[in-house]
Structure formats: structure tokens, C-alpha cells
């Protein structure tokens, strides 16, 4: 009997430690980002991060201003979100309210496939097909622009926005719909004036989750945005995002150098941005019972 209890206790503690692993990993991630980033504070000093020039490899003056990288990420993310929103939301409404059951069965796996395409493949496609298209359409010198990156990233955000918005729309109580229809509203009116507003917080959360995914995306942006670390809000210029900076430069830095440490600061900023986006959307979804506690 005591042996059985001991066994039960051991199993419980074992499972508990497996369960705590997620917490431990999150803590370790924070710990190691800061550990590697820390030396930067004493040399060359944390103030260096607030400059507006990113030029980490230079014989005259190394500059570690994060501003161009942040604006690069923000520009690409906002553009991508703007492109993704109509497709994502209209798609979600269409799939949940208009499409026939058969159509839905085809559409949903298709969208799931889109979510599964590796970003490097999407980046490759962007490089070979989308970039030349952007170049020709807008008459630019190069197709490697913020806009090109945004188009690709939009398609990475669409599956997230679609599937979570769809859940939000589905969770709108059917009585709303029936009440509206009973009052003589048409189906279209019911959809856009009753259902979508009722699901709005879920839809907003889905957009934020999509943005979280876009901000953190690395390969596709690195391959098609041209990698020019300049402060710009023009969609037709080349920019460089935070993610691309880390991926492109980490391979060439000397371990322990200021440049090395500065890339971890980029990681910290990136992590905090996605953390906030995810936290807020998680809270919203939880509040509306779309995630169980």
C-alpha cells in the first residue's frame, strides 16, 4: 500500500516537472537573451541603442542604433497587416457564413496548407516571382522592397486571422442571427451588422496574433526586403527588419563583441513586441471564452 502511494507520488512529481518545463524554458530564454546582451551596457553603453544609425561593422565608427531596424519591422508589419485584414476577415466570414459544407471542407485544409508552407520557400517564391512583379508594376530599380516583404508576410498572417476569426464568428450565439433575420434583415445585413460586430473582439485578437507572427517572421523578409537598414516609411524602399538583422549578421560576428551583444538586444526588443501582442490577444480570447483557462 505505501509502495503504491510512493509510486503514485513519484509519477505525479515526474509529470509535474514535465509540466513546469514550459515555464523553465521561458525563463531560460529571458535569462540567456539578457546574459548575452548584458556586456553591451558597460561597453559601448546602452545609450548606443537609441541612435538612429545601424552600422555595426565599420572602421571609423560602429553604430548600434536600433531605430532603423524597429521602423523596418514596423513598416513591414503594418503593411502586411493592412493587406491581410480584408482577405483574412472576409475569408473567415465567407467560410463560416456563406460557403457550403462541401466548399468548407476544401477551403479549410487549403488554408492550413498555406500555414504550413515553410517561410524559406515563401521567401524563395517572393524572390523569384513576386519581387520582379513589384519591380515592373511600380517601375522601381529593385523589387526587393518593404512592400514585397509585406505581401508575402500577409499570406503568412492570413491563415491565423482566418481561423481564429472564424472561431470568433462561430461562437456568436445563434439567437442574434435569428433575431436579426426575424426583424427582416437580409443575410448580408445580418452578417455585417450583427455577427461581425458581435465577434469583433475575437477578430481583433486574431489580427493581433497574425501581427505577432509577422513581426517574428525571419526568412521570407530577409530574402525579399533588400536589407537596407535605413529609417523609412516608404513601402517602395528597401528596409531591414529586426529578425533579418539577427539572422544575417549573427553568422559573421565575433562571439562576445559589442556587435554580438547588440544582436541580443535586437532579440530582446523583438521578444517584448511579440510578447505584448500575444498577451493582449490571449487575454481578449480568454475573456470571450474562446480559449479555456
Amino acid at each position: 500500500m505505501t509502495k503504491q502511494r510512493l509510486k503514485a507520488r513519484i509519477i505525479k512529481y515526474f509529470l509535474q516537472s514535465c509540466g513546469s518545463l514550459s515555464i523553465i524554458i521561458v525563463l531560460l530564454i529571458f535569462l540567456f537573451l539578457f546574459k548575452e546582451a548584458l556586456p553591451f551596457i558597460s561597453e559601448p553603453g546602452i545609450g548606443g541603442l537609441f541612435h538612429s544609425v545601424w552600422n555595426p561593422v565599420s572602421f571609423q565608427k560602429e553604430e548600434f542604433g536600433l531605430l532603423p531596424l524597429i521602423t523596418g519591422s514596423v513598416l513591414v508589419t503594418l503593411l502586411a497587416t493592412l493587406i491581410a485584414i480584408p482577405f483574412g476577415i472576409i475569408g473567415a466570414v465567407y467560410i463560416s457564413e456563406v460557403a457550403t459544407a462541401k466548399e468548407r471542407e476544401v477551403l479549410k485544409p487549403f488554408i492550413e496548407i498555406l500555414a504550413g508552407i515553410p517561410s524559406v520557400v515563401l521567401g524563395f517564391f517572393g524572390l523569384i516571382v513576386v519581387a520582379p512583379l513589384v519591380k515592373d508594376i511600380f517601375g522601381l530599380n529593385t523589387g526587393l522592397t518593404a512592400l514585397t516583404g509585406a505581401v508575402l508576410l500577409a499570406f503568412m498572417a492570413i491563415p491565423t486571422i482566418m481561423s481564429i476569426s472564424e472561431d470568433a464568428i462561430k461562437s456568436v450565439p445563434i439567437i442574434y442571427k435569428e433575431a436579426s433575420l426575424a426583424l427582416g434583415a437580409s443575410r448580408i445585413e445580418t452578417i455585417w451588422k450583427v455577427i461581425v460586430p458581435a465577434a469583433l473582439s475575437g477578430i481583433v485578437a486574431s489580427v493581433m496574433l497574425g501581427m505577432g507572427r509577422v513581426v517574428g517572421e525571419t526568412m521570407a523578409v530577409m530574402m525579399v526586403t533588400g536589407n537596407a537598414p535605413v529609417v523609412s516609411f516608404n513601402p517602395f524602399t528597401s528596409v531591414r527588419t529586426m529578425t533579418a538583422t539577427i539572422a544575417a549578421e549573427m553568422g559573421e560576428v565575433t562571439f562576445g563583441s559589442s556587435h554580438y551583444a547588440s544582436l541580443f538586444w535586437v532579440g530582446i526588443v523583438l521578444m517584448l513586441m511579440t510578447f505584448v501582442l500575444n498577451l493582449v490577444s490571449y487575454r481578449v480570447l480568454k475573456k470571450y471564452g474562446m480559449i479555456d483557462k
Binding site: 509540466g19 513546469s20 514550459s22 515555464i23 524554458i25 521561458v26 531560460l28 530564454i29 540567456f32 537573451l33 546574459k35 548575452e36 496574433l209 505577432g212 513581426v215 517574428g216 517572421e217 525571419t218 529578425t243 539577427i246 539572422a247 549573427m250 562571439f255 544582436l263 541580443f264 532579440g267 523583438l270 521578444m271 511579440t274 510578447f275 501582442l277 500575444n278 498577451l279 490571449y282 483557462k293
Partner: peptide
């Protein structure tokens, strides 16, 4: 349990490149 769930949500949202940085710092170095 709630902190575990919070941690899982956080993990799910961390950009892959940040995982790379973490792996570099912890496992590689």
C-alpha cells in the same frame, strides 16, 4: 497551472529567430 498555461502561450508566440538566439546562448555556447 495558470503560469504553465501562460508560459505555453508565451512560448508559442516567441519568434523562431529568438529561439535561435536562445539555442545559441544556451546549447551552443
Amino acid at each position: 497551472a495558470q503560469s504553465i498555461r501562460m508560459a505555453i502561450v508565451t512560448l508559442a508566440g516567441i519568434p523562431s529567430i529568438v529561439f535561435g538566439l536562445f539555442g545559441l546562448g544556451l546549447f551552443v555556447i
